[in-house]
Design a protein around this nucleic acid. Structure first.
Lengths: 205, 205
DNA sequence: CGGCTGAAGAATTTATAAATCATTCAAACG
DNA sequence: CGTTTGAATGATTTATAAATTCTTCAGCCG
């Protein structure tokens, strides 16, 4: 790690500490700078804006989550079990993270508004994992042949959106969310099963 | 219609006009009272609060929508087509309603926060229609036998939540929403098709 | 006496001035 | 010359007082 990266990391850690403790909007650039023993202006040589620091934090969080995703996906279990583990892991992790640190929700909300592409990119990355499970499932012979696994993954994400930021979308308790997630996944997986057939229609709706 | 109901309706209409034109929070009880040629205090003999007027408005809107739902459900079309029509109708209707009258979103948002039961009740009502279509589809022989159609309907609602208040949940354009709705519905309906099988698992997640 | 008003109170919103903040950049520094 | 600073700037937030607003209810009509 060179000097530049080192300073960047130091800023990121100092900011993360404050964002988590006091919240994003209650943290000032001067405070972060003071923690790093530099001037506020100097931070801008490493990050284009305060929002970019938050985005970098979120990116780091996502990359850590990707490690878990990768582990879950590469297990030698049936595809169906891996799907369940994947989405339940995601629900439990974000739910408890937000419950323990309400400040995370603030950052998520701000990014959702100010950096919508950020979430799209994360979803696209996640789809790589989903496609892998889908293809494994097809090879296993439990999932029917899919025309376009990536699109199918996209639709699974759309159907499971409300479990992604549980507290933002629904204010349901974890129990209820688990119950719904299980039910929706059962339906989706039934739809992927060999023997299932998509409706044939000319959608003149 | 007796005197009481008549006054109630007059208040409701006057309030609705103002809520739609100026928004809920920018409308005062005195203004509504003036429109009805009565004192603000007198409104409280007909509605317990300003919020209750908004709820009554939304209830009326839902009942009107129920008429369309009932029409769609009772058509002599295949169950699958009716499902598509049902949910596409719902998407188009709320999307354009909110687009044309942004004030509706304000009311929806306030009710979501202050009267969560209101939405639950509406969802429960909607499920009656969904269960009907499900049972028809089973009779038709296109849907597999379901253990508990009401729960299945609940799961469909959970999976299609993001299409319910499109602008609040996602800021996607109507095109993209239609595309996703079609995809998710195809998957769900495939999961209901005869031949589809729910995963057997012991969910030790 | 039932129906209505308008004054009164508590809560919320608005208005506005002061303070703080994110960000930029010329100049100082090493 | 590349780094860093700190003052300058425009935007945002905070603080606070004034004004509105929702809601209640004692008392006034008809």
């Amino acid at each position: 790690m060179n000097e530049q990266d080192c300073t960047r990391t130091k800023i990121l850690e100092a900011a993360a500490d404050r964002f988590m403790h006091y919240g994003y909007s209650k943290t000032t650039m001067s405070e972060v700078a003071r923690d790093c023993e530099m001037s506020a202006g100097n931070i801008y040589r490493f990050f284009a804006s305060k929002l970019d620091i938050a985005e970098a934090m979120a990116t780091k969080f996502n990359h850590e989550q990707d490690i878990d995703y990768r582990r879950i996906v590469s297990q030698s279990k049936p595809a169906i079990d891996r799907f369940f583990e994947f989405f339940f892991f995601s629900l439990e992790k974000t739910y408890t993270a937000i419950e323990e640190e309400a400040k995370i929700l603030e950052i998520a909300e701000i990014l959702r508004l100010e950096r919508p592409e950020f979430f799209n990119e994360h979803l696209a990355q996640e789809r790589v994992f989903l496609v892998k499970i889908l293809e494994d499932g097809i090879a296993e012979g439990v999932f029917r042949k899919l025309e376009d696994p990536n699109t199918t993954a996209e639709m699974m994400q759309a159907a499971l959106m409300k479990f992604r930021f549980p507290q933002a979308y629904s204010q349901l308790k974890l129990d209820k969310l688990r119950y719904e997630l299980e039910g929706v996944m059962r339906l989706l997986l039934a739809g992927l099963s060999v023997g299932a057939r998509e409706p044939a229609l000319e959608l003149a709706v």
